[in-house]
Design a protein around this nucleic acid. Structure first.
Lengths: 194, 194
DNA sequence: CGAAAATTTGACATGACTCAACTGGAGTGG
DNA sequence: CCACTCCAGTTGAGTCATGTCAAATTTTCG
């Protein structure tokens, strides 16, 4: 298993002995998905936390009218999961799907609990990771409450210039909470005003 | 310091020895605020995580037009902080203000780091707490993206029946991301339709 | 090249906002 | 105990940001 990028990410926050590395690796699973495949489907229980080694995932919710709402994109070195489903073992509200062929590393709920006991330092790593995710999520709530569609779009472009290249515009519209038609109109307005 | 409710909350997830209890308590601060006072002001660095023993806080962001957007209410046994500011020591995007006279317990950034080292089990407690917060925050993003104003309001009432009693309607409107006038119209419509 | 997918454009609809006026308590003080 | 003020909530008229639907155009890719 090529766990280099994953271990690099871990080592930024904690130091593991070589024996701890070994234990950690034994509790990870590597997996390759094809474009279009689902890592998680709404209604199922989210049994893994998924780290993207290469490729790209989208996490999205489908509402009662059948409309898709994108919660996040996960590119290289990011995580994806339905955290609510994962911690409470209840059916997920979201789907996770591959936008490209994607290589991931996964940790199951059981293994992560085991690891917390065997290597308490990992609690720290995951605490820090979740703190960052939570902070990002709060930032998004604030922006959604206080910005116009144009401001949200410009902010997104600034914050994630890499993402805009790899992902179709209609998905960005869904992430921003606007229709693809309206985003298209915004963009042409931005171009003519500049 | 009356830390009973706080320790009860801790003990739900981890077990501490009496010596660990002692160390923990030494690193907490108890404080009473009056209605209207600020626990945190936008632009300052958030130096504490705040646990509400008695009373009620609102966390809100003020945008460039001077408009208030409520991020959350924190009643008894809930936490409040600007997590992004807290972990990165950058200026906060949000204010935390008391809606009632409020008694809190606070942990400073320095003390919490110290505690993580002295009592590694606390990493677990805080990890779990943050996981729950993150899950709640994600749920809110999904609802904001996929529900109409009426659905959001009804959902809020169902989810937090206690909050509606204690908090003026215009703040609930702000939390839901709609104007107070529009919430008022929704409510009168709901009443006439029932 | 041809078909499917993504994007753009236009006409029209609507949910939610703004602003201003009004109502109805809940103090407060004379 | 009345008059006054203040604040929350309501109501209405007009407006605006964004959505809907349908058609046209462009891009992607087998």
């Amino acid at each position: 298993m090529n766990t280099k990028t994953f271990l690099t990410s871990i080592n930024q926050h904690i130091e593991l002995t070589s024996n701890e590395h070994k234990i950690l690796i034994e509790n990870l699973t590597s997996r390759n998905y094809l474009k279009g495949q689902f890592v998680l489907q709404q209604g199922d229980i989210c049994k893994n936390e998924t780290f993207v080694v290469k490729g790209c995932l989208k996490t999205f919710h489908v509402d009662e009218e059948g409309q898709e709402h994108i919660i996040r994109f996960s590119l290289e070195n990011w995580w994806a999961s339905d955290i609510g489903s994962f911690i409470t073992k209840t059916p997920a509200n979201s789907n996770i799907q591959c936008l490209e062929n994607t290589k991931v590393i996964q940790i199951s709920f059981e293994n992560i609990q085991k690891l917390y006991t065997l290597i308490p330092k990992l609690e720290r790593f995951f605490r820090i990771r979740i703190e960052k995710g939570f902070a990002a999520s709060e930032g998004r709530i604030i922006r959604n409450l206080s910005l116009t569609a144009t401001e949200k779009y410009l902010g997104f472009r600034k914050r994630y210039p890499q993402i805009e290249q790899r992902i179709p515009q209609y998905m960005i519209a869904s992430y921003l909470g606007i229709t693809k038609e309206f985003l298209s109109k915004l963009r042409s307005q931005l171009i003519s005003n500049q």
